[in-house]
Design a protein around this nucleic acid. Structure first.
Ligand SMILES: [Mn+2]
Ligand SMILES: [Mn+2]
Ligand SMILES: [Mn+2]
Ligand SMILES: [Mn+2]
Lengths: 221, 221
DNA sequence: ATATATTTTTAGATTCGTCTAAAATATTTT
DNA sequence: AAAATATTTTAGACGAATCTAAAAATATAT
């Protein structure tokens, strides 16, 4: 069944998977940007992945993963998120330090290892960033999280995920003492600049810019 | 400091380390056999490792690791054995199934990860095969184990390591119900064929061939 | 000391993943 | 519909790691 894939091939497949979640289809330039490589390299790899039946690709057209490709992608995402969970829960890493390590660990692909790790961790359904972890069949829980911008005034919610892992975002969040698990209440919205005022328990009111609010995902409580 | 090394370079360095433990020096053919590659490839890599100052090598002569090379080798061995311990202790793998997985995990090289894993496991000093785990400074505990062939009659001992991980050895051991941790007593030695008779608690006497005894390492109890 | 055998290195080719520069195709503007 | 622009693919080269076949050096045997 699943022939062996190189680390490079796995990285391409995972990147296509994430990009196609947005538009359904992916372009060569988009993928090159995502992988920090050149369009010419992407074309080469697409031809290879097509031979291996992992993508639906025709020259000069947008492409997407085949069902086999999607299956493999979900498996890679599973490994990535399980290792992230492991690093945070068992090795006491911060949720902002684990992504790069998981990028490496995700390529150790042994079904038994991954399933045992899953069991050891008690089958977690979400990773430390609030993203759902596919189970061994590739199914993932529905993400019950909502963007802060979509939440009505006076609602209480808990931060469960962030929209990016840029260090500039992380810097701002730590400055405002906001992290995964922080509970807050929406106090007021300002239509002029789409900023939001929130209150964290036992703290003063805080203002969040539109940009920041868009990067925060919460679940209602 | 430690420039980045490819997985391939790490594998060469680790293999040289293990081979030079025997004779002090390593030959091209020996290393090629160990890595299941061709002597020509070994020569190429030796030139590269020499430039990186990891080996003391002159054409046509036996070679060995530099002190930097040894340091890196100990680090790789540390990662390998910590992961083996993790897989057995936390993920319930058998000690005979973990080597191949550790071969992959050992190349995820992040100091913080390795040190945290070490702490999480409570700083184990020996891996599941009885081999000592280097600490974060590269120091390893003295191995107090002895080969079964060197043990006098009537001594009691506990199996703590095996000399190889070939499946033929593992098959024989499981047939005779011998594993890491098995306690036994030497009952008699036969000089004709150097076979040994041992007794395992609550079992009959068992005969071990010279070859098998040479592959078993124990510590006295 | 010469011949033979073994070990090691070199030369040249191959595969994978990448790149640059140029050509081909598609899209947008006028 | 032509021209201008943007996107994508091809052609050709390169570094890493490997291989085979042949040459060079070393070790062994006579
Ligand atoms: Mn991640
Ligand atoms: Mn994540
Ligand atoms: Mn091992
Ligand atoms: Mn071991």
């Amino acid at each position: 069944m699943s022939t062996n894939f190189s680390i490079t091939e796995e990285n391409y497949i995972k990147a296509i998977f994430h990009l196609q979640e947005v538009n359904g289809m992916v372009s060569t330039n988009e993928l090159a940007a995502e992988l920090d490589t050149k369009p010419a390299s992407v074309t080469d790899m697409l031809k290879k992945l097509k031979v291996k039946k992992m993508v639906h690709y025709e020259p000069y057209q947008a492409f997407k993963l085949s069902s086999d490709g999607k299956k493999l992608a979900l498996n890679i995402v599973r490994r990535h998120r399980l290792w992230e969970y492991f690093l945070v829960e068992k090795l006491q890493f911060g949720w902002d330090e684990v992504h790069e390590l998981a990028e490496q660990l995700e390529h150790v692909s042994d079904k038994k290892l991954v399933d045992r790790l899953d069991a050891f961790l008690n089958f977690p359904r979400f990773d430390p960033h609030g993203d759902p972890i596919p189970d061994s069949n590739g199914k993932m829980a529905q993400q019950e999280q909502v963007c802060l911008t979509e939440l009505p005034v006076q609602t209480q919610a808990e931060v469960c995920s962030v929209g990016s892992q840029s260090s500039s975002l992380l810097e701002l969040l730590s400055h405002k003492h906001i992290g995964i698990g922080t509970r807050l209440e929406i106090k007021q919205r300002f239509s002029f600049d789409n900023s939001i005022e929130i209150k964290i328990k036992d703290q003063q009111l805080i203002t969040l810019s539109k940009e920041l609010a868009q990067a925060l995902f919460v679940k209602k409580i």
